[in-house]
Amino acid sequence: MGKEEIESAFTKELFDKMQKMIEEKKMSMENVIVLLKRMGYCKTLKKIWIHSFEKSFLNKRFEKMIVEEEKKKDEEKHEILLVDLCECYLLLSKGIPDELLSICMSCLLKVATKNEKNDEVLEEVEVALLALSCINMFCNVPKELYLSELKEIIKHHQEHHNLTRLAYQCIWEFLINRLIKDENLEDVALNELHFVREARRELKDLTGSADWKGKEEGEKGGRKEAKEVLVIKRWLLTLICFLYLYKLLSEELTGLFGGVVSVFRAAKDNCVDVSSWCTTSLRRIADIRAIDVDVSLKKGIVDLFSGEMKQSSLNDEIIKDGLFFFFKISGRLKEKTDNEAEKMKRKATKMEMFEKMEEEGFEDSIVSLYGEISFLNKKYKELSKNLADYFVNA
């Protein structure tokens, strides 16, 4: 199912009808759970946000059942049911009350720490981690609820490769989302668990194995997006979040930029969403003060944006990202400094950038986009209407 189909199908009315069918004993809770888990898996894998479940009576029923099940004595507790309830709840809800947070975290991390390498366990772990990745980045999750288990899961996978690619992406997504509330986790993510190295490797492997041309077919014969492509999208969104929150400087990061450029080259003719998210993540680099501008030259980011902006058929997102990138880069290269070594380095970078732009016919490209710039400026206030702002004065 695509985004529009999911949004039209997953309605409050549908969930309320399921709740009524449970009460009238026309549908068993077991069947409801199987259906809801599949629905939640589908919409979460594709990063489609819906709010209909949390507004439904069925949502309230699940909240009550989770609390009641957790309060039971150990010998009376139905662990499998509790896991199912927590997974359905997180996969379909956007927010989570504090009362349920610790219950769901404890329950699903217990599943996620299973290390057996058989298909059944791999699927259980994948669904549990996918559900945990749904916890909103603005939700305050105390470190004592997850950090030791999370580190254990990541380190074990790095040594034994026991997780699916989706499961591994999900656990990183959960951790990177926590940075917005606790920037001290940056050191854990970068230096202890090596986020940048792992993200670069995963993107490279997924890019090489993905079915970019959509050879797989859906039930109605239409194009079915390969799971590898969907996981790449999720990595790119996680990377965008990371770059937005980024504070520390890492030498590994420049290699990751080159990896994103490679993903863009592989996807641009076949997957518009991936291309757009690539350019969005790359434009964030222009905002990171710790990253030298010449990194953009060395890793092919300037080539990518200058080349793409010459194309006659671009979507607004790629044009916006390109303009934003060059606007920020130009501004940084025009900044004054009293450091002589920095002056010489910046002068060399500006000259190299100027020659690159001249070679690519960048000035003509910008002039041809004059009307587009005026249009986009009304939508994206961070852009400039002044064409001169998009050039580097060497």
Rank of each mutant, 00 (worst) to 15 (best):
S374C: 10
L239T: 09
K356L: 12
L122I: 13
D294K: 02
R201W: 09
L387E: 08
S384C: 03
W235I: 02
K378A: 10
L100N: 09
L14M: 06
N118C: 12
M39H: 00
L92N: 02
L239P: 00
E219A: 09
C104T: 12
D303A: 05
I171D: 00
M39E: 01
M137E: 15
N115A: 14
V302W: 02
L193D: 03
I180N: 09
F138T: 13
E251R: 03
E159H: 14
L256P: 00
M1A: 13
S330L: 02
N184S: 15
E359Q: 14
E30S: 09
C107P: 07
T254P: 04
E144M: 11
N118G: 08
K381S: 10
I66Q: 03
K220Q: 12
D182I: 09
G331M: 01
L175C: 03
L179F: 13
L129M: 07
M27S: 05
E23N: 14
L383F: 01
D316M: 02
L179Y: 12
F324K: 06
M344E: 15
A348K: 05
N162D: 14
G222D: 13
V67S: 05
N339T: 05
K114A: 11
S102P: 10
G95T: 15
D338I: 08
H78L: 10
F324E: 02
E69T: 07
T238W: 04
K343R: 15
D84W: 04
K117S: 11
I301M: 13
